[in-house]
């Protein structure tokens, strides 16, 4: 090691601070000193999310068909008025809600079940967990392709092979039940994620509480409903929140499995109306603004849940 010069700690008031008056200004700079580390991330996020959003607001007030030579024209709230009577929009909204609620709900339900099963000690526990989490890691595009072509395909899909084995007609799932096919794939991918969160919750449960319940004479079922489930509540909420964030914005699966037929959610609908072939940039922007407003209502609710989680922690 290189011999370094010894430096005594500065213990004489070279900074010239010291009185009550000087402290005030040092507190002000203290606030900025604390803010400084998060400013880069903050500014970048503001620029990258808010600027496009403001542009969208402006576009939504214009008539702008990108596939024609018409110039962009300011038309006020007409796009929003048209939207109210657009039945395609409302059916996409309904698809969105259905898809999000059902997939998040089922993923949480199955995820909890799997977590409970995996929280027992048995041979090969870690390996079974590894197998179960894998679907979450699969690229959504690949998940969609594999399910569409190899599981559910009417001529060479594995599931239809079983169905035929039972003596029934093969079903072409993706065209007959487009929405539910997508839900199946989403649940397949997101159940492992929910399982991991719930598992973290189960493992965070203090064993002394469970032992106390046992001493108090509670059986397995009542221990689960009266102690484990309330304990898991915040984990379920966290899972639901993250699930809603990601599953309300599903695009890849729809694109690969159905290309939107009978299963377009709002993001996909906006896509279809704009760069996905509609080129109605003005109207599509209006749709997306409405989507954002909806999302913020959900987000507000979600963040309230989150704030509950954070304040519990502070206590």
């Amino acid at each position: 090691m290189v011999e370094q010069q010894r430096i005594e700690p500065a213990d004489n008031g070279t900074s010239g601070k010291g009185g009550g008056r000087a402290r005030k200004s040092s507190f002000l700079s203290e606030a900025w000193k604390r803010r400084l580390p998060l400013l880069p991330a903050f500014l970048i996020v503001v620029v990258l999310t808010q600027v496009p959003f403001l542009m969208s607001i402006y576009f939504s007030l214009t008539r702008w068909r990108a596939n024609t030579a018409e110039p962009r024209e300011f038309i006020g709230v007409d796009n929003y008025i048209d939207l109210v009577s657009n039945s395609f929009f409302w059916s996409a909204a309904w698809n969105s809600i259905l898809m999000t609620v059902v997939s998040v709900g089922l993923s949480l339900l199955f995820g909890t079940g799997l977590a409970l099963l995996l929280d027992r000690k048995f041979f090969g526990q870690g390996f079974a967990r590894t197998l179960i989490i894998t679907p979450f890691l699969v690229m959504p595009v690949v998940a969609g392709l594999v399910w569409k072509n190899q599981m559910l395909n009417s001529s060479f899909g594995v599931i239809n092979w079983f169905i035929e084995g039972l003596g029934m007609e093969p079903i072409s799932f993706a065209s007959r039940y487009p929405l539910w096919t997508i839900v199946v794939v989403l649940v397949w991918q997101w159940t492992p994620f929910m399982m991991l969160i719930i598992l973290a919750g189960l493992q965070g449960q203090s064993s002394s509480v469970l032992e106390a319940a046992k001493v108090d004479g509670a059986n397995g079922v009542s221990t689960f409903f009266q102690i484990t489930l309330p304990h898991l509540r915040s984990y379920l909420e966290l899972g639901a929140l993250l699930g809603v964030i990601y599953l309300s914005q599903v695009y890849d699966h729809i694109r690969v499995i159905t290309r939107g037929t009978g299963s377009a959610n709002l993001p996909y609908f906006v896509y279809l109306r704009s760069i996905g072939g509609g080129w109605q940039f003005g109207a599509a922007s209006a749709y997306s603004i409405v989507v954002v407003i909806f999302s913020f209502i959900i987000a507000n609710f979600g963040l309230r849940v989150l704030s509950g989680l954070l304040t519990d922690e502070g206590a």
Partner: peptide
């Protein structure tokens, strides 16, 4: 004897 009121912990020895 030195006023350390506004010193950082590092400076107080």
């Amino acid at each position: 004897g030195a006023d350390v009121t506004d010193f950082e912990p590092q400076q107080r020895d």
